[in-house]
């Protein structure tokens, strides 16, 4: 950990048709760490993730105030090049969503979109990304097969490889193991551990044990408010706020 801040929200508020989803959230994510975002359903954690790559503003009735800094640069600014931003900030969703193309074309999709045409460069990028996503050994020699022929766990890792292929700095993961079996979940968690040395990861999860296992920092959101954030070992053994305590111990009312 370098101590630098990769991603930071400042006084970030989001409303959907005047319904508050995030209320003045200020959160820093240090470079090269995993930040887990936890909280009850509807607390705003997915919204927070979706503001970080500017997906949230596409939801109907969305209004966003405050700032989100990536390396000190406000990505909510009008001048932000969105396709450039989404190369820097990759996202993996709850349900694996491979394109109905071959394995190769899925991973090569981003680099091609960015203008890469040289086959050998694409080939190297695809291999490197699949290796990083720890899928290479299972799919080498089968890269022309349809992505949808892979198992759920493999599809999720393919989506990760696709996100990695464009060389992001940040990975946003929205419940990445929610639809996976325990073995695939364990693999994905192991992968997060490996990837955090190269990328900064923000992980939204309902699974408290997962947050405890894989993250360096944890942020607890409740009703759009950032209640508490801190090093994960402290958050899970001795949180400061009673609402965090109540949530972690299953005593939180409504």
């Amino acid at each position: 950990m370098s101590g630098e801040v990769m991603l930071e929200t400042s006084d970030l508020s989001v409303t959907f048709y005047s319904q508050a989803a995030l209320r003045s959230v200020s959160l820093s994510v240090p470079t090269g760490t995993v930040m887990a975002v936890i909280g009850p359903s509807g607390c705003g954690k997915s919204t927070l993730l979706r503001v970080m790559n500017r997906l949230a503003e596409r939801s109907p009735g969305a209004r966003i105030t405050g700032a989100v800094y990536l390396h000190g640069e406000n990505i909510l600014s009008r001048d932000t090049d969105l396709s450039h931003l989404r190369r820097r900030v990759g996202m993996v969703f709850q349900q694996p969503n491979p394109f109905p193309f071959s394995i190769f074309d899925n991973v090569a999709y981003g680099p091609r979109l960015a203008g890469e045409r040289r086959h050998e460069v694409l080939r190297d990028t695809v291999e490197a990304s699949l290796r990083q996503a720890s899928l290479w050994d299972e799919v080498r020699g089968k890269l022309r097969r349809p992505a949808l022929s892979l198992s759920g766990g493999q599809q999720q890792r393919l989506c990760l490889a696709r996100a990695l292929a464009v060389g992001p700095e940040v990975l946003l993961m929205d419940e990445p193991t929610a639809s996976l079996d325990p073995v695939s979940t364990a693999r994905t968690e192991e992968l997060i551990e490996e990837l955090k040395h190269r990328y900064t990861i923000v992980l939204v999860t309902h699974n408290l044990q997962q947050a405890a296992r894989v993250s360096d920092y944890t942020a607890f959101l409740d009703r759009g408010i950032l209640v508490e954030t801190g090093p994960t070992p402290v958050m899970f053994t001795a949180p400061r706020e009673s609402r965090t305590e109540d949530y972690l111990t299953g005593r939180l009312e409504g």
Binding site: Q209, F236, T237, A238, P239, L248, T249
Partner: peptide, 9 residues
């Protein structure tokens, strides 16, 4: 039960 926070303590 994987207790946390105060329950863990």
């Amino acid at each position: 039960q994987q207790p946390m926070a105060g329950d863990l303590r």
